[in-house]
Design a protein around this nucleic acid. Structure first.
Lengths: 198, 198
DNA sequence: AAGTTAATTGTCAAGTATGATAATTTATAG
DNA sequence: CTATAAATTATCATACTTGACAATTAACTT
């Protein structure tokens, strides 16, 4: 009965466009006009399907966190039995352009969180969970390692990963991505060496 | 002859306010209205003393790069004779809140560089020079180390440093800062260990 | 074909942002 | 005190952004 709803489809398209704009212009720069242009729809439809600016940001945050959770699960499922940590680092540092927006959106949200306490809390949890994922894999492989060492190395790998992706806006940065990956691998090796020199 | 000019003083105040707004709202969110309110002057004075939006951003970028250069020089002058690398890491990771805006502004500029090729080029140079500074200290202390190792560790330390400061907008992140510092120290140690296991 | 539901389009009003220019005030020199 | 140069204030025009609502069109059911 009645015209079939495309709300789910449209909402998804709108959030795609919003995501693109956030990655490109930041949260403050992602105006409804730009989003509408990017999505190829009238601005009024954004309001109709998703709501006002605040609703948009909440919806994007929700989707971002949900996608991230799924993404993390996929990541874990994809890791082989052996050398899981090395595989993880390969995935983090050799990923394709398609996921590039992911970190850019994350950085934009983090920057915008300064004025939005609720968002800040959600993202703080998110960062912690990402670091925890890395830490869990490290623990699994180096179960005799000290907790401090695991925490430091996990934080370091996560930091290097976020940083190198956020610098993609600057264009080609020479061998920075490779150097960053090598740094991450060195952190991993530092755990092995802890182990030996005991 | 005539009223004494306060242009230099006002320009500096205006750029201070702009910097604060950029750190808080991002480049796109730092409107002339907000800057004027932050600086406590009429919006027209911004135009009078510095110019339009574009002039503002160029001026801020110029000042940022100049300050950064001085800051780096001060840093080097401050480092002691021995244990320079450890001192450097102390300075990077234990710095006071006063410099906090520094990295936030840098992150905001980097995010905005996606749409501004000229800015991107300047910041790419800036990042490289920062990494080069770390690399130079590493080389000075570990002159027998492989170039690859130096590059990787320098990139890693820089990445970890940028990342942890950009996360300050999320509030207290537990022991993340300490863990990050430990990760940086581990990277340094990894060079020493390379050396031994040769 | 009529009814119904939702998408889509059109339009309006209020608020904000920017750029430009004219008028005014203020601080100094002579 | 007067001339002068610069800061400051006032005002205007234009464009952008957002939110809200009415009108229309499209797709489906019975």
């Amino acid at each position: 009965m009645g015209r079939p709803s495309v709300k789910a489809q449209r909402s998804s398209e709108i959030l795609d466009a919003f995501e693109t704009c956030v990655a490109r212009y930041g949260v403050e720069g992602a105006t409804l006009e730009r989003i509408a242009a990017e999505a190829g729809l009238a601005r009024a439809l954004i309001r109709h399907h998703v709501g006002n600016r605040d609703d948009l940001l909440k919806a994007l945050t929700r989707r971002f966190l949900a996608q991230s959770e799924r993404h993390q699960q996929d990541l874990l499922d994809y890791l082989p039995e052996g050398d899981r940590v090395l595989s993880l680092i390969d995935l983090l540092f050799d990923h394709s352009q398609s996921d590039q927006n992911f970190v850019l959106v994350a950085e934009a949200l983090i920057a915008a969180a300064g004025e939005r306490p609720e968002l800040a809390a959600q993202l703080a949890d998110w960062v912690h969970s990402f670091i925890a994922l890395i830490a869990a894999e490290l623990r699994r492989e180096y179960d005799a390692a000290a907790a401090d060492a695991i925490d430091a190395v996990a934080a370091g790998i996560a930091g290097i990963y976020f940083n190198v992706d956020s610098l993609t806006t600057l264009g080609d940065m020479g061998g920075l991505r490779q150097a960053s990956k090598q740094a991450a691998l060195r952190l991993v090796r530092s755990i092995e060496l802890d182990h030996e020199s005991r």
